[in-house]
Every structure is written in C-alpha cells, then in structure tokens.
Design a protein around this nucleic acid. Sequence first.
DNA 1: ATCCATTGCGCAATCGTTTGCGGTTGATAA
DNA 2: TTATCAACCGCAAACGATTGCGCAATGGAT
Lengths: 341, 341
Amino acid sequence: MKRSTIKDVASRLGVNPSTVSRALKDHPDIGLALREEIKRVAAEMRYVPNQMAVQLRQRQRHLVGLVIPEMTMFFYPSVIRGIEEVLEPRGYQLVMLPSNESPVREAQNLKFCGENQLAGVLISFTRHTLPADGLSLLSDLDMPVVVFDKSLPELPFDSVILEDEDAARRATQFLIDSGCKRIGGLFGSPNLLITQKRLQGFRKALEKSDLPFVESLVRFAGNAAEADLCVREMMDLDDAPDAVFMMSDEIVMGAYPAILRSGVNIPRDCSVICISDGFIPGCYYPGISYLHHDGAGIGREAALRLVSLIESDQSAVLPLHRMVNAELVELESTNRTVKGE
Amino acid sequence: MKRSTIKDVASRLGVNPSTVSRALKDHPDIGLALREEIKRVAAEMRYVPNQMAVQLRQRQRHLVGLVIPEMTMFFYPSVIRGIEEVLEPRGYQLVMLPSNESPVREAQNLKFCGENQLAGVLISFTRHTLPADGLSLLSDLDMPVVVFDKSLPELPFDSVILEDEDAARRATQFLIDSGCKRIGGLFGSPNLLITQKRLQGFRKALEKSDLPFVESLVRFAGNAAEADLCVREMMDLDDAPDAVFMMSDEIVMGAYPAILRSGVNIPRDCSVICISDGFIPGCYYPGISYLHHDGAGIGREAALRLVSLIESDQSAVLPLHRMVNAELVELESTNRTVKGE
DNA sequence: ATCCATTGCGCAATCGTTTGCGGTTGATAA
DNA sequence: TTATCAACCGCAAACGATTGCGCAATGGAT
C-alpha cells in the first residue's frame, strides 16, 4: 500500500495539487467549504506530506547533528537532555553521530552533516583529534557549529565549556582547607584539553598552599577500569594520599570502590572530591563533595547558541566562548567520621 | 557563499547536468578524459550532492528513528552503542527521539518518523503508554519497526526483550540459595511490563521455596531518589530484610547507598542482587552479583532485525519475538564478610 | 560505399511540494 | 450596462538530482 501524495488527493477531488497544498495549510485563497472537504479527504486517504520534497523546496531541514566522542553513560546523557530541552520546542531533531573516539569516524560524521545539509552541528571532540584537524574539519563544514565540553585550543568557533581550571582549583582547595596534606589527583586522558586545564588547576591550588606536587600521586586513567588500577598502586604506596581529587564521574566510579577495596576508609583515612554532574556522588556512601559540572546546562547553552546562529544565519562573526562556572556542592557526610566508626 | 549544485558544475564545463551526475559515479557512458575533468572541477568547486534531492528521487533515506522513553544514563547508552555498531557499517544514521516518559511526545515522535519516511524505527515505550495506543501508533506507521526492552503485551511487531521473569526468578533463587530468608524486592514503575514480569519471577522463586511474599518488603520506585526512600522505610522495619533483589541499575544507585546509610552492612547483614548491564555492580564495594542484562546485545539484535526488515521490505510477516537470556555473574565479595569486619 | 554497432553525450521526465502569477467567476459600484 | 474588485482556484516553474531513451559521430565489417 503506497502512501498517497498530494496529487492523489488532488485528483480524487478533481482539483489542482496546489489547491490541496494551500487548503491544508489554511491559506485564505481557498474557500472554506472546499478547504474542509480537502482536509477530510486528505485525512481519510491518510495523506502525510513527504518531508524530503518539502525540504528540497524549502532548502532546509530541521536536523541538528550531535557529534560526540563516545556514547557513554557519563555526562552525555544529561547533555543530550539539555539539548533536547531547547531543540524540541523549536522543531529540531537531533541526529546522533558518535565517533567512538576515532578521528576518522569523526571526520566522516562531519562530512555526513555537510552532505545532508543539517541545520547545524554540536560537537565535542575525541581525545585524539589534533587541533589543526579539528579546525580544518569545521572550517570546511560551512554551517553553524557550536563546540561543547571537549574543545580544542584557539578554535574560531562558538563554544560552551566548563571553567575547568577554576573548578579543579577550587576542588583541590577544598581538600586543602579541610586539612589534607598529601593530595592525590586522578585525571582522564592526558590528551584532552579539559584534563590539562584541570591538572593545571589542581597544581595551582597545591602551589598556592605550598604543598608538594607529588608525581606518584598524580595519575591518568582513560576509563573506570584504569582508574581502579591507579588507585591500587597509589594506595599501596608508603606515603599513600590522605585525599584524592577525581576529575570526572567515570574516574569516581572506578576509583571510589577501589579505595574501599584497598582497605582505606573514606573519609576517615582519605577524603575525596570530584568534578561531577551531581548524580553519581549521591550514589555513594559516604557521599562525595563535588564541583557541579552541569551537563544539562551546558547542553542547553550550546543548543541555544546554535539555534541563534542558525536562525540569524550569521557565520563569520567573532566566536563566542562561554565558560560555565562550577558550583561547589558540599555533602556533609564527606568530612565527618561516619556513624558507627 | 552558496554551495554549488550539479548544474553549476555542468555549466562551468559546458556540459549537461546528467553528464556530471554520471561522471561522478563512474558511469562508463562518459569518456574517461571528460570524467576526470569533471571530477576535478567538481572537487575544485567543492560540490557536494544535495541529499534531499537525492533522497527525493531515490525515495528513501538512511535514517533510523530511535524512540526511547527518556535519555537516561541507565541502559540506553549501551543500547545505543549496540545499535550503532550494527547501523554504522551499513550506512544508517540514528535519529534520537526521546519521549520524556510522555505518551503524547511519543506519538509526536512516531509521527515524525512517518512524515520523514525514515527507513525504520526502534522503539522502547514510555511507562505510561497504554497497550492499545502503542498498537495503533505502530500500525499507523506503516514502516519497519522493532520494539526493544520496554515492550507492550501482545504486540504484533518484532521485539527484542530480556527474559525478565526468568532473570528475576534466578536472581531471587540465588539469594535463597545463599541462605537468605527475608527477601525484599525493589522494583521500577509498576506500569511497566518488565516490572510485572520481574515481580512475577521474584514471586515465583519465593513460592517455590515456601518463603513468604511480604508486602512491606516489596516496593516500587520510579527513580533512584524514590528507591532511596523505599530503602529507608524498609530498613526501619522491625523485620528488616536480610536480602534485597533490585530490578535495575537505577534502583541500585538509589538503594545501595541508602542501605549503607541506614547502618546496615552489606553483605554481612543484608545481601544484594540485581539485574544489570554489569558496569554499575562493579562500581560498588562490596560488589553486587547480578543477572547480566546485556544492553549492547539487545541493541545489536534489535538493529539487526530492523535492517533485515528494511532490506527485505517485508512488513506483514508474522512477528518475531526474541527473548534474550540473562547470565548470572557472581561477584565473590558479595557473599563473604568483608576484610576487616 | 553501405550497414551496423559502439561510444559518448544531451534531452526531458521524474520524485512530491510550494508558490508567483494569471485567469475565471460573481457581485458590487458607477 | 460596464468597469472594478474581491474571492477562488489552476498553471507551471521551480528545488537538485537521477535515468531511460534518443541521437550524433565514429569505427569496423562487409
């Protein structure tokens, strides 16, 4: 059963396709009686407009590409929620384009966006994308782009990112303020700009308080399993840390249980703080204080910026870089000895 | 700078658009010399085919709609990974259509799929979708559909779901076998078919061992926060449970820390088992044994089935219902007293 | 020299909609 | 009675690509 077109409806009623088209969108040129009749028949024939044809005429489609390094349970789901919140009421749909941490795939994804003339692109880069490559990819694209979270240095495109350095600095300072002396740091992939910035913030906080930056207490883990390993090694050290800064949820989920497993009590023997969306820290007991990295908020901001780019149709203005501040959320149980111990 | 069309390329070379079209796809009708020349110029003019036009002619687009109840960090990210694994090499792209647990939005999403003639649809229903509504929505759609995970009873469409009842039964049996007598159950939204089935499995396991089904030990929680509340109440009971079955990751993340917070020791005072994708249980210490609910596997199966439907172009054959078995994964730390306690 | 088969390219229709413009009506005003 | 003007609707050209068919030129075979 082929789907009926506007012509089918028209010929069934002995009118012109253009009349049907106008009637269905309540164009005043069409008489009220005929208009209703057409609508009735169209509904009866279960006519639905072919969007490919519509879009060809209208030369635009309401699709936004979302290019992300990987579809993980961390961070991106909430970013997507934020994006959807903005896009849905405006009639845009999101096309998922995960790159699986492969720059090659990322390039393909971007190419897809170009060929299919999506309305715009939201992108977070893979950990292996070189700044030069990212730049040329986006430049070739010739459509509205907003970079979020995993950005690259000095990109002439709009971006929405966290105040990474500041967040890490304040997190570390929090540990220092609560009296910790030997502070370890667990970071993500060292290629990432956010890792570098957070490391920088971590280091600065230590420096400011004249605490040593101990190499053996600073580790990089690409995922939760690696974070687990890092913790084992770290906690086996003679001079194990009395506090650990964890730069992300993924690190937390690997490292937190690993600390407990190594026989160290949180928070009595070792304090923990992290940068997080806020959900994960509440899923542990004792809870974890954190600098709030608002995924949904970043998604919203990025999407808002993108639609304004799309709808204002300007591309070559000077890029806007939005730095989102992180808020400290302090869980009371973090810095107290736990009941019964 | 408008993008150049096939006509632009043609007129630049003084040839017909059809010649350009053929040359670019290496049609033998076009002489080799001209063919190369055309390719050169096309590349130089940065010509990219307009997919809307192509798709209009070809009357198909390689987009697959993914309609899910909500974009959460639980389960769906891994499902999406599984789906992408299958779809990407076959040239399909995924369009995200989260329904935010609203049947209205779900209907809109499905309508979008129809109007945009996507190649097919993968759907997991909201917790509020009525069986009759779901049925009529999909029937109206008139395109390949595969339902996964959150299905509805007696749907005449292909589906890929977990052997829910069996998984819950075996999980509960595991608790019974390890000597637990007062077994509590934490379930998700009671509307869901998977909840009903898992509850059924839970109940059957108890019955088989002549253990009582205690109403006060069986609770339903729509999310992690509610699970937290349920646990508080449950653990305050005079006859608190000595084991808890949790039907999902989300329940675990709310309930597990809540148990600890109530001063109960896991696993000494209370054993825990759950149905899970496998990542979350490893993020706790002590770890949690679980029945493996393979999200990526389900995504793969569903996507495979969908592409076979799409490419064989058959719709009215009898529906295939694939039931995926869950595998028991036993963590050693679960049933032992923890070191140092 | 005639015929036939290639080779190489252009013509024009087509996909399903939208939309500027023009052409009929019938009614109203002059 | 005739000019005017709505109100209504149809014609046909787009949008950008694909493709069956036709047709000219070429070359080889007869």
